[in-house]
């Protein structure tokens, strides 16, 4: 006869309470600090997916792996950088990091676009920069008003949220604008041939691109609180904030993000429209190339 009692106490593996006790120590009340092991549990979930992908030959295991590693490294570096900047608490490094994030957002916005024209990177960076910084400045200086104004724990996450959304909008809008212009070339050119100005001929495509770019944020806003609890609010609730406070912040940030997307999209489309048309009311088809 095997004595289960003895066995379980000699082999800690079988003693679940002990195992959990050893690795997953009960946290002090109110703390949400994660250990690296706890992060590892989340990674395991994705690891299982990668195994399934390998078994089924889905061919995305490698991409899951590289994206995971990339994301981990990027966020780890961000953590270290933020730690440094938080400690410094000087405006210059905060603005420097903000500028770097902005440029990267502009470049990433273009990376996902199929059709490009020569100055598209410059335009996308300018559009991201202008929209995100105007909106974030208003949020920081007039709404949140941290002391000092450059408090990195306020500025950096807010800007990050605005940038991430703005870049998605700009990317969708530009992609739609340029591909649709190419697809509807015959229609656009017929309008020009019948006396349309360049704006009259491109207006339809411009509007459609704007609409496409705004759909994700409009969807997010319409299901917020019903289907999903938005990320920022989740974070605040986890950190122990009052639900009403978290909700107020979330509503504010939704407005801010939507405004940043709208400004960024219209700006990037207007610049692109100027770049692919000329004052002779012609479309510069040769400038639009597949990447």
């Amino acid at each position: 006869m095997i004595d289960f009692e003895t066995l379980s106490s000699t082999l800690p593996f079988f003693n679940q309470a002990d195992l959990l006790g050893q690795f997953f120590k009960p946290r002090p009340e109110g703390s949400i600090s994660l250990s690296w092991l706890e992060v590892g549990v989340a990674a395991t979930l994705l690891f299982i997916n990668a195994i399934i992908s390998l078994q089924l030959g889905l061919g995305i295991a490698k991409r899951i792996a590289t994206s995971s590693v990339r994301m981990t490294i990027q966020l780890a570096i961000l953590g270290l950088v933020l730690k440094q900047i938080f400690e410094l608490a000087q405006p210059a490094p905060v603005l420097g990091l903000a500028a770097l994030m902005t440029v990267i957002a502009g470049v990433s916005a273009v990376k996902r676009i199929d059709h490009r024209y020569p100055s598209i990177y410059r335009n996308a960076i300018f559009a991201v920069w202008t929209s995100a910084w105007i909106v974030t400045s208003i949020t920081v200086l007039l709404i949140v008003r941290p002391q000092p104004w450059h408090s990195p724990q306020v500025v950096i996450p807010l800007l990050g949220m605005v940038l991430g959304n703005s870049l998605t909008g700009i990317s969708l809008g530009l992609d739609r604008f340029l591909s649709e212009l190419k697809n509807r070339r015959g229609e656009v050119e017929t309008m020009l041939a019948l006396g349309a100005t360049r704006w009259e001929s491109c207006r339809g495509v411009f509007i459609e691109a704007t609409r496409t770019a705004m759909i994700p944020i409009l969807n997010t806003m319409s299901v917020a609180g019903i289907v999903s609890i938005p990320g920022m609010m989740t974070g605040q609730l986890l950190a122990g904030a009052e639900p009403i406070e978290a909700v107020k912040y979330q509503i504010m940030i939704m407005f801010v993000i939507a405004a940043a997307i709208a400004i960024g999209v219209v700006l990037s489309l207007a610049l692109s429209y100027r770049n692919v048309t000329n004052e002779n009311h012609q479309i510069e088809w040769e400038r639009i190339r597949r990447s």
């Binding site: 020009l192 041939a193 339809g204 009311h281």
Partner: peptide, 22 residues
């Protein structure tokens, strides 16, 4: 002039090989 080009195109209309409509 640049601004007069749409009016010019109204007077001198290019008819593409394939017709296009909105």
């Amino acid at each position: 002039t640049h601004d007069a080009i749409p009016s010019y195109r109204r007077e001198v209309i290019y008819m593409s090989q394939r017709p296009f409509f909105t």
